[in-house]
Design a protein around this nucleic acid. Structure first.
Lengths: 209, 209, 209, 209
DNA sequence: CATGAATGAGGTTTCATTCAT
DNA sequence: TATGAATGAAACCTCATTCAT
């Protein structure tokens, strides 16, 4: 499915390792300076290799961007998989709380890549755009599922579930994208707490009006 | 305050007109292709001038970016000024509804620039970053004012007013930044309605819990 | 028909002039060092421009090669047009003599380009290969026409006209391609004389066997 | 005479075998893509070795080109040695027919190398250019010898023997160099037949004029 | 005021060659 | 012997900026 990236090596394990290293270093640079601003030489330096060596494992600068996006996709799916699944032992409300906590922690870990996707989506190839798109779609679907569950149990009362899921997602992304602003006044744990409360007030069934 | 931009002309009115024209054309290009991707020649073509003429009114490519940000700043402040001020005739709730509507409509008008600021913040000079920052700060302050007013009248009950203002702002920005996604399912008017309702549920005082 | 070559200038006359200049300088370098060996900077230097200026009139190094081939095509057709057409006033034999003379003189003028086509055909884009191919085909057709004419008048007796035309062509090309060898012992005028005689002996009807 | 090529091995037989293998593989690649276009890695892959191994038997990429030319030289001399020598049993005419057949068959076998020499002569070191030159000189000498023999027996009547030899050689080389064109209409055996006839008409003594 | 041709620094990418394993 | 990862010089190409007209 994923477009194969050119390499001159046959040692797949080595290629995978080097690429992961490259992706990690590049992500930092890309988000610090932007994709176009970052030069290949800077990436190579950050990786501790010569430029030639970089191109031994990667076909082009754009491939490196793909690598970063793909690694983000993997990490994002791990976050979504950490969402609570066993609805027998916990309420939907509690499940949503946990999910929101996971989401914000994930955003905190993946700040760089998240911000990168926000900023560079339009520079990506269609394939990579699709990957970025899928990350968002999957996350929205996972959140919707929790919200629907709560509606079924009567804990939530939501006019437009898709919109509510979107709002949760956008506010979570803001932790990554606007961290330069939010971090001034907020610590992560406390922020999670407050945002969860905010959302629950907006969707809980026990509201007068 | 603003760094003076070099020009060879003495006719200030002409310079102002040309610069506004340049800013408008450049904004579209910057947001379509990104700042770095957009070449000065493309901007000049879009403006219907030669590159030399462009440099007659502007000192550098970065200056053009500043021009765009500055024009956004002006437009943004107009939006904020359209917020309801006369609290004798309308309730805080109604005022917030109107403010949210203005905000989203403003985002709809300024999509390009808004997106641009999101994506290119890091390419900006400190001065321009400050301008972008101020836009956000001013908007947050205006929203906070409305929220505080509602708290005073007892219409709202809000744990963290700054956070609530932030949430309103972020969700409004999402209309511009994620329009490729939101527009699939939402019309602006309807979206405004729903989001206002969503926010009001989260902050209205008449809530059980 | 020809693929348009990118330029940033709108002044068609200027573009044409510069490109002709570029083609002339490049042809010399290409044939001296080969296409790949010749660097763009060398071409620019030979043209007396900066590399940037070169790219102002031309989209890529390969475009320059096309330019050279195309100019060769034009020149080659001029040679073919100089072939005698009026068969009422001269015999086919005399016409062939004149054509061979034109052919060899053309090869002498176009040595560089001819050699270039010989050596770099495989590096050319399909379109340029077609151009090179067409030059050859047109020349062969022109020669065939003369040979057929001679057969009709009974002056020539030829088993395989296409082959004879091919032979004339190949031997003429050798003057350009192997000039480092031929020039040691031959002057052009004398060589033309001898080769014409050689061909006529091979195809004249008045042969015993 | 030949410049020694660096190797790290002492087993001369092994070195010779490997080099022959390398020359054969490289010849194909060089003529398909050209010398510069062909990368050392491609050659190594085609040889079924690592690049390091290649450099174990060869000092540089240029050495490989020399190897190819040298092997061509050997093969070419074999062809020339197959020319008829015993003039007591066959006529000069028949000897020339056989020689031409050998020549064309040799060109057919050595197409790749022949084409390579045509195209890449200028990339060669002086020493290798000399080798290429010698091949041509030797062939011309061998052909001249046959022609002179025929003149002595009265079978041929030739104005300029060197030129006739050159023509025979050039037309033979065309079978290799223009095979993409000739092969469309001609089979080798038939082509040999016709070209021999063509030459004989041009040089046979029994011609009226 | 207006132009656009000219420039060259700097970007991405390739590839012959080496050397530790 | 054999390997292939590592390298960096040098290639092609872009584009912000200037300046003569």
């Amino acid at each position: 499915m994923k477009k194969a990236i050119r390499t001159y090596s046959n040692d797949q394990q080595l290629v995978a390792n080097r690429r992961e290293h490259i992706a990690r270093c590049a992500a930092r640079l890309f988000m610090k300076r932007g994709y176009k601003q970052t030069t290949v030489r800077e990436i190579a330096d950050a990786c501790g290799m010569g430029t030639g060596t970089l191109y031994y494992y990667v076909g082009s600068k754009e491939d490196i961007l793909h690598l970063v996006i793909d690694s983000a996709s993997v990490a994002a799916n791990e976050v979504l998989n950490s969402f609570p699944r066993d609805f027998h032992t916990i309420s939907a409300t509690e499940a949503l709380r946990q999910a929101i906590a996971s989401l914000y922690k994930g955003m905190d870990d993946l700040q760089d890549v998240c911000m990168l996707i926000y900023r560079e989506t339009e520079h990506l190839s269609p394939a990579a755009q699709q990957t970025a798109f899928d990350i968002e779609i999957n996350a929205l679907a996972a959140i919707e599922q929790l919200l629907n569950r709560g509606c079924e149990t009567g804990e939530f009362r939501i006019d437009d579930v898709k919109l509510a899921a979107h709002n949760i997602m956008v506010l979570a992304e803001a932790w990554a994208v606007k961290r330069w602003f939010l971090r001034r006044h907020h610590k992560l744990e406390e922020h999670i707490e407050k945002q969860a409360e905010f959302m629950l007030r907006a969707i809980s069934a026990n509201t007068k009006a």
